[in-house]
Design a protein around this nucleic acid. Sequence first.
RNA 1: GCUGGCGUAGCUCAGCUGGUAGAGCAUCUGAUUUGUAAUCAGAGGGUCGGGGGUUCGAAUCCCUUCGCCAGCUCCA
Length: 647
Amino acid sequence: MPNIQITFPDGSVREFPQGITALEVARSIGPRLASEALVAKLDGELVDLSRPIETSTSIQFITPTSPFPEGLQVYRHSSAHLLAAAVLELFPDARPGVGPPTETGFYYDFYRERPFTEEDLARLEEKMRELVKADLPFERVDYAKEEGLKLFEEKGEFLKCELIREKAEPVFSAYKTGKFLDFCRGPHVPSTGHIKAFKLLSVAGAHWKGDERSHPMQRIYGTAFFTQKELDAFLAQLEEAKRRDHRRLGKELDLFSIQDEAGPGLIFWHPKGGIIRKEIEDFLRDELLRQGYQLVYTPHVARVDLWKTSGHTNFYRQNMFTAMRLEDAEYQLKPMNCPFHILIYKDQRRSYRELPLRLAEFGTVYRYERSGVMHGLLRVRGFTQDDAHIFATPETIEAEVGACIDLAMLVLRTFGFDKFEVELSTWDPERRDQYFGEPEQWQAAEASLESALKTRRIPYRRIPGEAAFYGPKIDIKLLDALNRPWQLTTVQFDSWLPARFELEYVGADGQTHRPIMVHRALLGSLERFFGVLIEHYAGAFPLWLAPVQTVVLPISEKHHSYAQDVTEQLKKARIRAQLDHRNEKLNARIRDAQLQKVPFMLVVGDRESAARGVAVRRRDTGDAGFQLIGDFIRQVRELIDKRAVKW
RNA sequence: GCUGGCGUAGCUCAGCUGGUAGAGCAUCUGAUUUGUAAUCAGAGGGUCGGGGGUUCGAAUCCCUUCGCCAGCUCCA
């Protein structure tokens, strides 16, 4: 048998007989590697360790400690197969659909008359552990298409048959694990014994191939990690996310509610949430005015004709509330603010000297969402965008886009976010008919967006084909305290609406020209942003946002009047202060203030009233000792004024 | 909208196979006068999400409707 040459990651080359398996190569290096390796990478392609190597190649072994995400993906994919094998042991009537790895684990879809229950999950997990102990191999078998199809048909695997008919090559691979045979490209870890730490998380409904008209499927979600420690950390993070859930905190801290009687997806901002919203709006408004925006207010409804002109009745109908008939015409609740701002623009003849014209509004819009998709503050039917439309000449577009990005970064950082992901969504030149406008316009638009990012040295990802039909856009996602991404800021280039509404300005040359529009929202929606903020801070807001900034706690009744005096002084300094003189032990009142996440608690008793001071307790670090009342006020005022996130 | 789960006091929840509702916290009243995360006692509070049905009898079983939760699908 001829020899082949195998190149190792360190550059060394060794000869092996043709047909040797990757596992044998690993063994030639060391028994430890052979037992830990999960898959091999041959010239960059992932393969099973058991696969014979026929030609010279480079090789790399992937173990749990390899710095490649592919290892974990394969591992989770194998875990999904392990799950399917366990399901077939306990529920022979289940018909496996698909079961891929996901970002945080894996799932497997089954077709079955009866849904799985929580108890079923526990039994399945137990069975999976048994199969791990049995150390079953993930055995790869190649079938000719017809022969393989027949095999799956005999097993009654009608879903797999459908996939094979649609996707299989003339010879396709399948993987066998115990009773489970899957049409699968692989690769997999060598055997079930390699799977160390996993957990089944939930059952949920799904649809075959994601098509809601197709078979209902039962999806079992699970996750798997190389070590129990990593799994535990992941589960702890799930718990932490639950602890921070804005719906729960919104109730506990009395920030907002959703009322059955009013309808789903409609938000009631309670007084404490209202103060936070006011602080957010005040801050934004000040910045907007500083940056040359002009504030406008527009109605919530308009004649349907307006929405016909804008094109919304056509391409956005599915997201709009149905129109209402009034005496003279049909009226439509607004799903967007742009046509209104356009009407303000059109209300007079515009000169190039007025541009860029920046119109900003906290505009409340209503969008119809299907009943199953609402989620707290994050997905609602009525929300307020911190919206703005910039009407500009083509020459100034890049500068305007750049200014939007700068403003977005400034704003988001002020709220304490400092990790971002930026995306540039561009068109797909292959599908020109999907987009409005000429290719040259698109290239110019993309170039100006891209250049705005480049001159700021902002790292970004280009996503072809993700542009809106009317223009390319830049989206900024922030990462919260749990590193979850949230898409908030969007800056969109639009030459479609200016054309629809025949917008014009008179240029320096005395001719009329068409302006370009930039749609831009920094926080996206105030409701959604509020939800993100609550979860990011777990309800413990920065001082400047905290609904109650200080609570004054008199030790006993004889300190009431001094406590009252302290509270008045705080209020005079525009610090939100509350006096808690309830007939409760100090400990109980401290506890309540802690649970309400009040930044400062001021204990006042004999010592404090004698010395005109307060005993400061901080929300995060506890007792901070005595301070003169004047000093405390000055310090807190300063922290509020500079919108400190930490103190 | 679809699949599955759930809906009992303001909140968190108990209530086995049908026999006209219970705890803790919160609220109110009284006692207590408190030094850095829950003082004690008493009282009030529910047409068991809404409607219909089965039954001598329904929080419990059935139908229907509204809402919530986890997903699917779609988005700020």
